[in-house]
Design a protein around this nucleic acid. Structure first.
Lengths: 153, 153
DNA sequence: GACAAATCAATTGTGCACAATTAAATAGTG
DNA sequence: CACTATTTAATTGTGCACAATTGATTTGTC
């Protein structure tokens, strides 16, 4: 019984927690991006939005939310700031007035050229090979997927 | 040249980014904890603070910040909320008036018993063995460590 | 065509993160 | 001792995250 309590207590130690390793690594990653993105005038979540828009050429608030796992409560003010910065345009869809289309402006598209070198710079900083990165990325995607599956209530 | 541009463009795709996998997995983890912690009246960062206090029996704002990689700008209001909830006590150290000591109250200590089952519940939800968890945790600690090393300016 | 249900974005409110500044206390140095 | 530099928390301000609500539009069903 004493042994069992010890085991359970060990499981509560901060450095034994996967959740904290994930939380700390994620914040360290964002912090590593910060100086590079600051040069582009972007925050990290804004950068993620621009990644989607560079890839798709244009999207909607809903589809951005699906891609980034963010809701309109987060995206609406963020997109307003990107619009104010002249990087994107927003307007209600003609087809369906509920939908808001989001597209990069010319300035927004042009910014992609200045972002091209960032992934390599970060990979270098992380000290990981292309192979290591791919492996870790796959494992994290699997973990996220498992954690996100809604349990039957 | 076209090939090189394509490679660089591929590196900017959202789902090829380690940073996004990390960001999404971390938020999914926090979301998975939320209903369990809500039952204890804690947010996720508050839970992390309590983990440290359960482990150490008491700490300081500075040492909490070191352990959790958070500064006083984040910790001060968070600790005020934990104090208001009756889970911790804060007071200036007698030895050094700059330092604020933080210790769990009896209610705060008692809460540990209700938290003991959480790590196992999450491990199950993540669908990972003890072994897998330890491996991923180690890799994330290494990644965080590499990302956090300040470059010579 | 009427109307109930569903979809989508925006808003409101709370709680982190983090930069920058402030203020108090201590440590270090001549 | 005087005086500067450092250490420590707290405060202020910005920008996410996310729950809950609101309001407009569309879809589905009769």
């Amino acid at each position: 019984m004493a042994a069992k309590n010890t085991l359970a207590t060990d499981a509560l130690k901060l450095d034994n927690q996967l959740c904290f390793a994930l939380y700390a690594a994620s914040r360290a990653m964002t912090a590593a991006y910060r100086p590079l993105l600051e040069a582009l005038g972007l925050t990290y979540p804004q950068y993620l939005v621009m990644l989607v828009l560079w890839e798709t050429g244009g999207s909607t608030v809903k589809d951005l939310g699906t891609a980034l796992r963010l809701d309109s409560g987060t995206l609406s003010p963020l997109l307003k700031r990107l619009e104010a910065a002249g990087l994107i345009m927003r307007r209600r869809s003609a087809d369906d007035e509920r939908v808001v289309d989001v597209a990069p402006t010319e300035a927004g598209k042009a910014l992609k050229q200045r972002a091209l070198s960032i992934p390599q710079a970060l990979a270098c900083r992380a000290g990981l090979s292309e192979r290591d990165i791919a492996a870790l990325r796959t494992e994290l995607h699997r973990l996220e997927s498992r954690l996100s599956t809604a349990d039957a209530p």
